[in-house]
Amino acid sequence: MRHAKDLTFSLLTPEDAVDLLAFETAERAWFEQHIEARYRHFYTPQGVSQHIVECLSLNAQRRMSPLLIRKRGMLIGRANLRDIDENQAKVGYRIAKSACGQGIAYRALKHLMKEARGVYGLTTLTAIVSVENDASQHVLQKASFDAMDILPAYSRVADKRVDCLVYQCALNATC
């Protein structure tokens, strides 16, 4: 477990299933305004448990790093390195509505960047974000990610197809 002031970043575990289900259920409407909806089955004890098993299986293969973000013990977000392959990976994060605007997404992204470089030896990170998600675009730009491409009608958010931007960051000793 790593601390960033009052935040902790920890690897997802099977023991987190109850907290994770409560978090994801409470934040579902908020998340679905900005990112693709999860399947309905995810929002069940079995669905979350299956999700955790899948994430930890990928983690054991060094293809994913699924982290939980807690503030003073309360689950407030998730941050993931996923699709880890050779020297690159994708980043993703989701932060509770009540925790937005506090720099937590930026701190989570910087944590992922440090882990990507230090633990996995990665050189490039990619993020895909809706063109309508200004807050995530701002976080990515602040963390030295550059917009590289646009993906027309790439994602379905709030029952409509949206264009997405591909952001990329070349990791170096200063990130």
Rank of each mutant, 00 (worst) to 15 (best):
A89M: 03
M74P: 00
A127T: 04
H138I: 10
P45I: 05
G103R: 09
R70N: 03
K110C: 14
R117A: 10
G47V: 12
C100N: 08
P66K: 01
L56C: 06
P45Y: 03
N87G: 13
S136H: 02
R117H: 09
N80V: 05
V129E: 10
L67W: 12
Q137G: 15
K142N: 07
I69V: 11
M74I: 13
Y120T: 02
L125N: 03
I52W: 05
K71A: 14
Y93I: 02
Y120D: 03
K114R: 12
V139K: 02
V91H: 00
Q50W: 08
K114T: 14
R117N: 01
E86P: 05
A96S: 13
G103Q: 00
H41T: 10
L58Y: 07
L81E: 00
A99I: 10
C100H: 01
R63Y: 02
L125W: 09
Q88W: 07
L112F: 04
Q46N: 11
R107F: 01
P66R: 00
I76S: 04
Q88I: 07
I104A: 07
A89I: 05
E132M: 11
Y43F: 15
K97W: 00
A99Q: 06
A105F: 00
L68I: 01
A96F: 07
R78P: 05
L75I: 10
A135I: 05
C100G: 03
Y93K: 06
L109A: 03
L140M: 02
R107T: 13
S49P: 04
E132P: 04
R72F: 10
G77V: 12
G92V: 07
R63N: 06
Q102D: 01
R117T: 01
R94C: 01
A89Y: 07
K90H: 15
G73H: 08
Q137E: 09
S57V: 12
Q88P: 00
R72N: 15
R40V: 13
S130H: 06
E54A: 15
K90I: 04
T44R: 09
V119D: 12
R78Y: 00
A99G: 08
R82Y: 15
S98A: 15
L81D: 01
I104W: 07
R72G: 12
H111N: 09
Q61L: 12
K71N: 11
L125R: 06
R72M: 11
C100E: 10
Y106S: 15
N59E: 11
E86Y: 14
S65T: 10
R40G: 10
R62C: 07
Q102R: 09
L112E: 02
Q141S: 11
A135P: 04
H111T: 08
L56M: 05
E132R: 12
K97A: 15
Y43M: 11
G73M: 11
A89N: 03
L112D: 04
L122R: 07
V129D: 12
Y43V: 11
Q137V: 05
A96T: 06
P66E: 04
Q102Y: 03
Q46S: 13
G47K: 13
M64C: 13
A79V: 04
V119S: 12
S49K: 08
R63E: 14
K110N: 10
G73W: 06
A99C: 05
G118H: 06
G103A: 02
Q102E: 14
Y93P: 02
K90L: 13
K71L: 15
T126E: 11
S49Y: 06
A96H: 02
E132G: 13
L112A: 03
